[in-house]
């Protein structure tokens, strides 16, 4: 994709946040998470799907006209897809850039996939997953001890 078409497809924003390098197919999911937080529904947003990316081949992207994304939202997004980059835009330029990393522990935010895990049967349970040492990107349920990829785990609806 040439510089010319980039401009055509993705209008630049003067001030805001770009959520970039979202793995293809996850753009809508990430947007849903952001919009589930108070005040985020009204933010002017552009969503781009299936853009060409030198890093990922294809990628999804969001542009939000908002000053900051609170840490709580960033943590939540990291559960869906770590590796997303966040760019803060001021005067059309990237003012600050960082990559969201995977959490080492996830408490009360995702459900265990094992239907026979006690966390799916007992009322008032808080789930807990910890990153495994041997398999990067995989998490172990601290109750049933099963191991899952982060993307396999369903978010607890807010």
């Amino acid at each position: 994709m040439s510089e010319q078409t980039k401009v055509e497809y993705i209008p630049k924003i003067e001030r805001g946040i770009v959520v970039d390098h979202i793995p293809v197919g996850y753009g809508v999911k990430v947007l849903k998470i952001i919009r589930s937080y108070p005040g985020m529904k009204d933010v002017v947003t552009t969503i781009g799907l299936n853009y060409l990316s030198t890093k990922l081949g294809r990628k999804d992207m969001l542009k939000l006209v908002t000053d900051e994304l609170p840490q709580e939202i960033l943590d939540h997004m990291s559960l869906v897809s770590p590796g997303i980059s966040i760019k803060r835009i001021r005067d059309y330029q990237v003012d600050k850039k960082f990559v969201i990393t995977t959490p080492t522990e996830i408490t009360g935010q995702v459900l265990c996939r094992n239907p026979n895990c006690i966390t799916n049967h007992e009322r008032h349970m808080t789930t807990c997953f910890k990153a495994t040492r041997r398999d990067p990107g995989k998490y172990r349920c601290m109750f049933c001890e099963r191991v899952f990829f982060l993307g396999e785990l369903e978010l607890i609806s807010r």
């Binding site: 006690i118 049967h121 601290m142 109750f143 049933c144 001890e145």
Partner: peptide, 26 residues
């Protein structure tokens, strides 16, 4: 207990020692 993780839950709740005598297939 027939469900996996039940003993871990019990141990977290109890103030006395808990021994797992089998939690599902775990």
């Amino acid at each position: 207990h027939p469900q996996e993780g039940a003993a871990r839950l019990a141990a977290g709740a109890a103030s006395i020692p808990v021994i797992n005598a089998g939690d599902g297939a775990n």
